[in-house]
Amino acid sequence: MAKRIDVNGLNAYYGGHKAIEDITLHVEPRSVTAFIGPSGCGKSTFLRTLNRMHEVTPGGRVEGEVLLDNENLYGPGVDPVQVRRTVGMVFQRPNPFPTMSIYDNVLAGVRLNGIRYSRSQLDDLVEKNLRGANLWKEVKDRLHKPGAGLSGGQQQRLCLARATAVEPDVLLMDEPCSALDPISTLAIEDLIDQMKSRYTIVIVTHNMQQAARVSERTAFFNLAGVGQPGRLIEVDATDKIFSNPSEKATEDYISGRFG
């Protein structure tokens, strides 16, 4: 179930290029934390260090520690595959498996666990997670049709259902609404609100209204200049960040007075 995240002195590299530097951040369980900042400041990179997806990129390398309820994800002997089963992720572009039905998409991760379920248990899992993603009513009559036939917003909710079906402790979302229309965006935001009682949620967004709407805490990232690594400037309660930030850079960015 929902776990706390403690990041201490984290650096991440792409080959020789240091993309983020010295990030220390604490995230409470059952909360929503938003990452904001100009593009290229390393929000996605940082997010992907939280489920060890960063090292999938050729040359990707991480220094420092990420503790999930006091267990270091980068400790010796920790299997990245196991980490990714506990820390789920939703991507910027909806990416359901095009070769699978809606039903099989929801179960894609579940089937990796090697546990054998009965047909009715699987049906229940599918229904529960599709309901959890507010998608059940729309797709219950076409569960065995391809997931790629859904609209973008429906596909993204299908990806959410797929991510929750493995019962992760943490859900990471990288600009999950940036490819969606406003109505689908609202649907996802409602969903985040409902899900925060069960998961620790971290969401990257370029949309500050969205950060204000969905998150309790907001972390502002910035980079000193082109080619410089991104840094965490400040993290605080969301209303504090948007009304009275401690840092000048944050205020400039919030108010749109930014390069």
Binding site: M53, V56, V81, R85, G88, F91, R93, N95, F97, A163
Partner: peptide, 15 residues
């Protein structure tokens, strides 16, 4: 193979 699909599988904890 779309990178997005490979990443989706990896993020679900696929070997």
């Amino acid at each position: 193979t779309p990178k997005a699909n490979e990443e989706a599988a990896l993020a679900l904890g696929a070997t």
